[in-house]
C-alpha cells in the first residue's frame, strides 16, 4: 500500500522512507534484483532474496546460526594477534579498522559445535574481512582447529570464502597453504572426515589448498569458485569468459565438487553426511543400541 502512491513528490517521500527503513534494518535492497525486501523475510529464508533467490553474503555468526544446534558453538583461538612480517605500511591500522567494522578478529571464525547433537569442529571464513584473504592468523586458526579435531577425533567442516592470499604478508601467506593442507592430511590419516563448503567467492590460495581437499566438497548455488580470478584469466587468454564460467554449477559439471546444496538444506545435508560417515551424537563409533 505504502509503495503504490504515485507522483513525483510522493516518490521522493517513499525513497526517503526506504532509505530510513534501510538504515534501521527493517528492509534491505537486494543487490541482484534491486528489490526492496523485508529483512525479516530474508532471515527467515536463510539470507536468500525472497524475490529472486539471490544468496546474500552472511557473517560467520549468521552461518553458524544456520547450521549448528542453537547454543552449541564454542569458539577457539579468538584472540590471536595479526603479525606484520613485511612491515607493510599501515597494515596494523588496516587490520584494526577491519576488526572495528566487522566485529571479527580475523577473516575466519573457528571452534566446535553440534549438528543434530553430533559434535564437529567448524570454521567459517568471512568475505567482509579483507576479502577473506589468507594470512598467518587465518592459516594458524584453521591449522589449530584441524589439529584439535585430529586429537579429539572430531570431523571438520569448513565454510570457505576467500579472495586469495593476504598480499600484505607476502611469502608467510603462501606458507599457510602448505601448513593447512598438511594438517588436513594428518587429520585424514586418522580416519576423520573433512567437509569443505565453498561459498561465494572461493578463489586463489584457498582454492589451491584446503577448499579443494574435502572428502566431500559442497558448494552453494552460483558461488564463484576458481584458482585464478576471472579478470586474470581474461587478461591471460585475451578474451571474455563465457557466462557461468567458474560457477558452482560449472564445477559440478566438470567433476570438481560433490554437490550443490541450497542454504535451506545445508544443515540437513551436513547432518546426513556426518551420520553416514560414522559420527553419532556421542562421538564416532560409540553408538548406543536401542
Amino acid at each position: 500500500m505504502l509503495f503504490r502512491t504515485q507522483g513525483r513528490k510522493s516518490k521522493k517521500i517513499i525513497e526517503n522512507y526506504h532509505r530510513q527503513q534501510l538504515t534501521e534494518g527493517l528492509f534491505q535492497k537486494c543487490e541482484a534484483c534491486n528489490q526492496i525486501v523485508y529483512t525479516e523475510d530474508v532471515i527467515e529464508k536463510k539470507h536468500v532474496c525472497p524475490n529472486c533467490g539471490h544468496y546474500f553474503r552472511v557473517t560467520p555468526m549468521e552461518r553458524l546460526g544456520m547450521v549448528l544446534d542453537s547454543g552449541s558453538f564454542e569458539e577457539w583461538d579468538k584472540d590471536l594477534k595479526t603479525k606484520n612480517p613485511l612491515d607493510f605500511p599501515e597494515y596494523e591500522k588496516k587490520i584494526a579498522r577491519m576488526q572495528q567494522n566487522t566485529g571479527l578478529s580475523e577473516a575466519v571464525v573457528t571452534g566446535k559445535g553440534k549438528i543434530g547433537g553430533i559434535e564437529t569442529a567448524i570454521g567459517v571464513m568471512s568475505a567482509n574481512f579483507m576479502m577473506g584473504s589468507m594470512g598467518m592468523i587465518v592459516g594458524e586458526k584453521i591449522t589449530r582447529m584441524v589439529e584439535r579435531a585430529t586429537q579429539k577425533g572430531l570431523p571438520v567442516i569448513l565454510f570457505c570464502c576467500s579472495g586469495g592470499a593476504r598480499m600484505q604478508e607476502g611469502m608467510m601467506s603462501l606458507m599457510q597453504m602448505a601448513k593447512t593442507s598438511q594438517a588436513l592430511k594428518h587429520h585424514s590419516d586418522t580416519g576423520q572426515l573433512y567437509i569443505s563448503v565453498l561459498t561465494d567467492p572461493t578463489t586463489g590460495g584457498v582454492t589451491a589448498s584446503f577448499a579443494m581437499l574435502g572428502d566431500l566438497i559442497l558448494a552453494e548455488p552460483k558461488a564463484l569458485i576458481g584458482f585464478a580470478g576471472p579478470r586474470v584469466i581474461e587478461q591471460t587468454i585475451h578474451q571474455k569468459l563465457p557466462e557461468g564460467f567458474q560457477s558452482a554449477e560449472f564445477l559440478l559439471e566438470h567433476g570438481m565438487i560433490d554437490k550443490i546444496v541450497s542454504r535451506k538444506k545445508m544443515r540437513k545435508v551436513l547432518y546426513f553426511l556426518l551420520q553416514s560417515s560414522g559420527y553419532h551424537a556421542n562421538g564416532k563409533g560409540e553408538e548406543k543400541n536401542g
Binding site: 579443494m212 584458482f227 585464478a228 587468454i237
Partner: peptide
C-alpha cells in the same frame, strides 16, 4: 591461468600436491 587449466581443476591439482 587459462580456461582449460581451470576446467581441469588447477586449484585441486595444486592442493592435492601440497
Amino acid at each position: 591461468c587459462g580456461m582449460d587449466a581451470e576446467e581441469r581443476g588447477q586449484g585441486e591439482a595444486i592442493a592435492r600436491n601440497l
